[in-house]
């Protein structure tokens, strides 16, 4: 029954931080709540017996994809407004709630790791089974994913070029 409790705590944290994320005025604060929400869903995946998916969620979603958001918010924050934002960061009320939610998730993962595998749900599908399946019957899907990522790379490179701004003067 203990994994039920862990699942519901993580689910509550995920829902609460998602709600807080879409109601913030400041994009950076929303980003922190979104990262907490993704960490919460990683715990949900772990409790559900998908440890590899939980690791990927933290590494790629909460790590790589959120870093892109951070870079863009940094690029858009210019001049004195950025300095004012920096002062707001030091106020405790902006970081106390995400820290408490993160601490709850940390306590859960420490409990899960210290109690060996008892807290997991019945079937654990490890990385080995996923890898065998991924490069066996699903190898075509891997190729499609690689082409999709290449298309995303080319698209992002094209959209990020600066010459598109200069066209504004002619087209308007």
């Amino acid at each position: 029954m203990i994994q039920l409790g862990l699942f519901y705590i993580a689910a509550t944290i995920t829902i609460a931080s998602s709600l807080l994320a879409i109601t913030r005025h400041n994009a950076s604060h929303a980003l922190i709540y979104l990262i907490v929400s993704l960490l919460g869903s990683a715990i949900v995946f772990y409790v559900l017996g998908a440890p590899f998916a939980a690791v990927l969620e933290v590494l790629i979603y909460a790590g790589a994809i959120m870093v892109l958001f951070v870079f863009v918010i940094m690029m858009l924050n210019l001049g004195a407004a950025g300095v004012k934002n920096e002062q707001q960061w030091l106020k405790p009320r902006t970081w106390v709630i995400p820290s408490l939610l993160c601490l709850a998730l940390l306590a859960e993962i420490i409990y899960l790791l210290s109690s060996s595998n008892q807290a997991l749900s019945g079937v654990v599908i490890g990385p080995k089974a996923v890898g065998i399946e991924l490069f066996g019957p699903y190898v075509l899907a891997v190729e499609i994913a690689s082409m999709l990522l290449l298309a995303g790379l080319v698209g992002a490179y094209h959209l990020g070029r600066r010459y598109l701004i200069d066209m504004r003067g002619e087209s308007i």
Partner: peptide, 24 residues
């Protein structure tokens, strides 16, 4: 079955591509 996690990885790559183009 491990198929669910494979679909999860595909959605992950879709999200990565989407966010790159979206932020551009």
């Amino acid at each position: 079955q491990p198929d669910g996690q494979i679909m999860f990885m595909l959605i992950l790559s879709v999200a990565a591509a989407e966010v790159a183009v979206g932020l551009g």
